[in-house]
Simulated assay, not measured.
Amino acid sequence: MFYNLDSITVSRWERGVNIPSLAKQAKIVELYDNELTCIYACDQKFLQESTHLIKCHSNQQKSIHPYYKNDEYNIQTIDIKDDSFYLVLRMILRYEGNPTLMLQPPLQEFDSLNDLKISVATAVNGQIVGHCLFLTTTENVLTEIIDTSKDLSAIINSNNDNEHDAMLVFSSSGATKQVENSIMSTYLHHFSQQRKMRCLCFYTCDGNLAKTLNLAKLKTYRVTKVKFQGRIINIRSYLLKRSELMANRFLLKLAIITPKQLGCLLGANTKEQVHECTHCR
Rank of each mutant, 00 (worst) to 15 (best):
H190C: 06
G263N: 12
L239D: 07
N162W: 00
I232V: 13
Q104N: 08
Q178H: 05
T212L: 11
L22A: 08
Y68F: 15
T137K: 01
H65Y: 06
H279N: 08
N140W: 04
S21T: 15
L133P: 00
A166Q: 03
I233R: 03
S84G: 05
S11H: 07
E14K: 11
L53E: 04
P106Y: 04
Q261D: 09
C201G: 07
R195G: 13
Q193N: 09
Q44W: 05
Q25G: 05
E144T: 14
A123E: 02
E72Y: 13
L87P: 01
T9G: 07
K62I: 14
L239I: 05
Y221A: 10
N34T: 11
L262C: 14
S63F: 02
V223D: 10
M246T: 08
I39E: 06
I64F: 05
L218F: 05
H52N: 10
Y40Q: 07
G267L: 12
H131E: 05
F134I: 00
Q48F: 11
Y40N: 11
G130N: 02
Y40L: 14
Y67S: 15
I183S: 08
M167E: 04
N160T: 14
S119T: 15
T143N: 15
L101C: 12
I19M: 14
L113M: 08
L209T: 15
Q61H: 10
H189Y: 14
A255W: 01
D79F: 04
C205T: 15
L209E: 10
V226T: 13
Y238I: 12
L5A: 05
N159A: 15
L107V: 11
S112H: 06
K253Y: 07
K227F: 09
N181C: 06
V179E: 02
P105T: 11
G126P: 00
A255I: 11
G230L: 02
Q104R: 04
M91Q: 13
Q193E: 12
A175H: 00
T204Q: 06
R12W: 02
F2H: 07
Q76A: 14
A154K: 04
T186Q: 03
A166V: 10
C199Y: 00
Y3F: 14
